[in-house]
Nucleic acid binder design. Structure first.
Length: 168
DNA sequence: GTCACGATTTGT
DNA sequence: CAAATCGTGACG
């Protein structure tokens, strides 16, 4: 059964409707697809629903964070430093505001360079990644032995939490 | 309305 | 190390 975008192995809603850190870890090795462009996700960061001062959702439900409180599998995109678009994927069930920042996908390093290279911008805010031109395809699973965990990059709050996942 | 700030990148 | 550049959230 193919999806609207023609692919038959997209990650479905249930994949994203799990604990944020688990989704972040399991997103490694999957394919980020935008139209004809595709890139293998190699680095992610989890921003938790609770007890995470660095998460935008910690500020509560606002116009900007609205999508993070919605159904999983949707895109949370925002402009950072007035220059770079950051792509996040909403995790957890509706009402639980967790999201995963896609920090890099081969061959691109850096969240800002990735979105620029793949043409992702604010128009993708709220887009459903389980269907449509912007989506995630299932790739080969990355074994724990190849997954590294470190503190997240570029944040000032909660910098001691190990919520950054990358392929070693 | 005004203001400080930031999940980055690039160049000096 | 500092600049670029602007939407958001806090405050009045």
């Amino acid at each position: 059964m193919k999806s609207l975008n023609g692919f038959d192995n997209n990650l479905d809603r249930s994949f994203f409707s799990r604990p944020t850190a688990v989704v972040a870890r399991d997103l490694l090795g999957q394919w980020l697809v935008h139209g004809d462009l595709r890139a293998r996700i190699s680095e992610t960061e989890a921003y938790l629903p609770m007890g995470d001062a660095a998460a935008h959702a910690a500020a509560g439900l606002t116009k900007r964070t609205k999508v993070i409180f919605g159904p999983p599998g949707h895109a949370y995109v925002y402009l950072n430093y007035g220059i770079h678009y950051m792509l996040n994927i909403v995790a957890e069930p509706v009402g639980t505001p967790g999201c995963v920042l896609i920090r890099a996908a081969e061959p691109w390093s850096g969240p800002g360079r990735l979105t620029k290279a793949m043409g992702i911008n604010l128009s993708h805010y709220g887009a459903d990644l389980t269907q449509g031109p912007l989506t995630i395809l299932r790739g080969d699973a990355v074994p724990d032995s190849r997954v590294a965990k470190t503190p997240r990059i570029g944040i000032r709050k909660a910098s001691e939490m190990y919520l950054r996942f990358l392929i070693a």
